[in-house]
Design a protein around this nucleic acid. Structure first.
Lengths: 174, 174
DNA sequence: CCGTAATTTCAGTATTTTCTGAAATTCTAG
DNA sequence: CTAGAATTTCAGAAAATACTGAAATTACGG
């Protein structure tokens, strides 16, 4: 796919952002390209457009499929896989947040619970350390409970809640 | 500082988490250590406890100071710098979110605005691409406006708003 | 089934990031 | 000032991560 200068800059920026957040640059670039592309692309075209190896695209796409940020489609008379990205930014963020929560926050919660349980009868670790870990666990639990309760709400409701929050802030700020 | 097994595991876990989120492992470990430590530590002690080079601690600490997650303190009769971490988990998250917003989200917003402006009279880029970028920009702006309005609210108010959200979710969910 | 196109795998290589240790610099007590 | 302690800098080494290309596998039309 031919990239115009703006598209080019967009993809580079997104790759850069990705790597700052612990996402492979190529993966982020593939995602950016598919996010912009008006039509489904096949792996060879992605590789050629981004100037990376075909095999690299294969691995990257697999990751994006696992994240459910990209889907496979097909055309009649073409055996190749074509890929399309989720185009709704709200949905993109939702999927990323949910994924990182499941892959990173949930295991951390389990880990902290385990630490706190062990510290129950651990006499060598200072009490202050135990309290600190317990406090952090409680904080994370508060946050995730909130997230779990609101994550399924329709977008409209979320937007209303955000506007409500802004109003409250305005009143308090005066 | 002598690490008990739980402390050791905690620091390792935190280092691991850090690197998944684009934070240098040593920096994350130094932060974890100072977060647990009941008293201020000096650089040599940090290096020895974590088994990393003194110079590495120097660089890591500088970064944590820049993030304002760690502060320097001194003791009478001791020329060395001692370091303490911010211990309140709410404050830790607040500082991290604010920092990443300033360093990454704000420049991205500026970048997207620039893209949209250029696309005004760019005939070679498909209209669909322009709309996509504009949509993403609007989304990000909605999110940051909300964040900016509530970020200064007292913790109590935030907690109330979270509980309110959970109630709304419960009612809608029924 | 067969032949070929498409895709995936993965060992080796390249690149990027992180870390070290020695040297330079800064700081302070005397 | 000066001496030594504390800290920082930074070039080079080490480690981690990402990428390539060739070979293997899979998938499909005929």
């Amino acid at each position: 796919m031919k990239l115009t200068p703006v598209m080019h800059r967009y993809i580079v920026h997104w790759g850069e952002m990705g790597s700052r957040w612990g996402i492979n640059r190529s993966v982020a670039q593939i995602h950016a390209l598919l996010y912009l592309a008006p039509m489904p692309l096949h792996a060879d075209e992605i590789a050629e457009t981004l100037g990376i190896a075909r095999s690299n695209v294969s691995v990257g796409i697999k990751e994006l499929l696992a994240w459910e940020l990209v889907q496979v489609t097909h055309t009649l008379g073409d055996r190749r896989d074509f890929f399309v990205a989720q185009k709704d930014p709200w949905e993109v963020i939702r999927v990323i947040v949910e994924g990182r929560k499941r892959r990173e926050i949930d295991p951390t919660l389990a880990f902290l619970r385990n630490c706190v349980a062990e510290l129950e009868n651990d006499t060598e670790t200072p009490a202050e350390v135990r309290d600190r870990i317990a406090g952090q666990l409680e904080f994370l639990e508060t946050l995730t409970r909130w997230y779990e309760s609101i994550k399924g709400l329709p977008r409209k409701t979320l937007l209303k809640m955000m506007r409500l929050g802004q109003k409250i802030a305005k009143v308090i700020g005066e």
